[in-house]
């Protein structure tokens, strides 16, 4: 099936992903997009940074993204890496559904849950684990290896949980509306 919009900013895939022509996606064969995800211009997604050596049980996947995610302009997704048993290796990054990554944010998390809002300019350190229903405010710097529990609002440098989100957080964090607008 040919892409629907031949001209225009976005290339739409079979599963409804809208990827900007101006985005910078490396190693796309190692990236899984769940569908209906929007990747804006100047986004960098480093699918080339995959686990070294032979493909293991997870295959070659470097970055797995769920549905209805939104990566705003100039955001960077980079799988985390570390030295383990004397050798440096990257580890896969997994994102859930309805993940918003704000303009210029840099994400090196090991896992980001569903219904997560990462504000513009935020930095998510290596191997951070962000659970579901989390709002990370603009400019927050989450330290490496940090675990953010569900229903948290995170702010500051380093980012710490400053508030619990209400029960309705999931509704306010879902991104179906944004997808329809693009």
């Amino acid at each position: 099936m040919p892409p629907k919009q031949v001209k225009g900013e976005y290339i739409e895939t079979d599963t409804g992903n809208k990827v900007s022509r101006k985005s910078n996606i490396l190693g796309s064969q190692n990236i899984i997009l769940g569908g209906k995800t929007i990747i804006q211009a100047d986004c960098t997604i480093r699918g080339d940074l995959r686990r070294s050596g032979a493909p293991g049980q997870h295959g070659n996947v470097a970055i797995a993204v769920g549905r209805y995610c939104f990566f705003a302009r100039s955001s960077v997704l980079r799988p985390p890496g570390k030295v383990s048993r004397g050798a440096f290796s990257f580890y896969p990054m997994k994102l859930g559904d309805h993940v918003f990554i704000g303009e210029g944010a840099v994400v090196e998390a090991a896992m980001v849950g569903s219904f997560v809002h990462i504000g513009a300019g935020a930095v998510i350190g290596k191997f951070a684990i962000i659970k579901d229903c989390v709002r990370i405010e603009e400019g927050t710097v989450v330290a490496p290896n940090t675990v953010i529990p569900p229903f948290s609002r995170v702010a500051g440098r380093p980012g710490v949980v400053v508030e619990e989100l209400p029960e309705t957080a999931q509704d306010s964090l879902e991104l179906k509306g944004i997808y329809r607008m693009i």
């Binding site: 225009g8 900013e9 804006q40 211009a41 302009r73 303009e103 944004i178 329809r180 607008m181």
Partner: peptide
Amino acid sequence: LPPTPSGEPRERE
């Protein structure tokens, strides 16, 4: 909302 480069403004917007 994040800048929407193109796309017709819908009534909902």
